[in-house]
Simulated scan of single mutants.
Amino acid sequence: MKNTDAIQVLLALGQETRLNIFRLIVQRGDIGLTPSQLIEKLGIPNATLSFHLKELFNAKLLLVERQSRNLIYRPNPNLIEDLSGFLLDNCCQGQSCGTPKSKKKVQCS
């Protein structure tokens, strides 16, 4: 991952509503969420949600699939993994630093 890619992702997540949307979508994993489900959970207007989903999609944080008349938004696990690797690359000057493992092991694919 390049610096510019990481900056784009971090800027997209650097807004509270977008971060809340992204966290909800990540919680659902492969199941994903529709815009109407997100509106119901967050209580934000459709136009506001649409704007923020576009920003998250443009940052490649989300995958979108059309099912019949619905759009399903899911997290992009490859980008999340790449960003984690990018942020932790060279951690502790390349030495094992004993970073704690995640308590939950979740597979999104």
Rank of each mutant, 00 (worst) to 15 (best):
Q95E: 11
Y73T: 03
I7L: 15
L11N: 14
I21W: 15
S68N: 15
Q93M: 09
K54L: 03
G43M: 04
R28F: 13
K103W: 13
D82M: 15
C91A: 06
R74Y: 08
E65H: 14
S84K: 11
K60M: 06
L88R: 02
I39G: 04
S68L: 15
L62E: 03
I72D: 06
K103H: 09
E65F: 14
L24M: 09
P45I: 02
L24I: 05
T48C: 02
T17N: 06
E16R: 13
I21C: 10
P100C: 02
K103R: 14
I31M: 07
K101F: 02
Q67A: 14
S84E: 09
A12Q: 01
R66T: 10
A6N: 05
L13A: 03
P45H: 07
C91H: 14
L63N: 06
L83W: 01
L49K: 03
G98K: 06
N70D: 10
C97P: 03
V9H: 11
I72M: 11
F86S: 04
N76M: 01
P100Y: 01
G85M: 05
I25H: 10
R18T: 06
R18C: 01
G32L: 04
T99G: 07
F86M: 06
A47S: 14
N70E: 09
L42C: 03
N78F: 10
V64T: 14
L61C: 08
S96Y: 15
H52Q: 11
S102G: 12
E16A: 11
I7N: 07
P100N: 02
I44F: 00
C92S: 12
S36A: 01
L83V: 01
L56I: 08
L63P: 05
R28L: 13
C91N: 11
Q95N: 06
R69C: 13
Q8H: 09
I80S: 04
S84R: 10
P75L: 04
H52W: 12
K101R: 11
G94V: 05
L56Q: 06
K103L: 10
R23Q: 11
R23Y: 10
A12N: 00
P77K: 13
L19H: 05
R18W: 02
Q27H: 10
L83N: 00
Q15T: 14
L87C: 06
L56G: 07
N76W: 01
L83Y: 00
Q15V: 12
F22R: 04
N46L: 04
R74K: 13
R23H: 10
R69I: 15
I80W: 09
L63G: 05
F22T: 01
N76L: 01
P100L: 07
K103Y: 13
N70K: 14
G29W: 12
D89K: 13
L87K: 03
L42W: 02
I44C: 00
N76Q: 00
G98M: 00
V9I: 11
D89R: 14
T99C: 10
L49P: 05
N90A: 03
N90V: 02
Q95A: 08
E40L: 08
K41H: 15
S84N: 08
L83A: 00
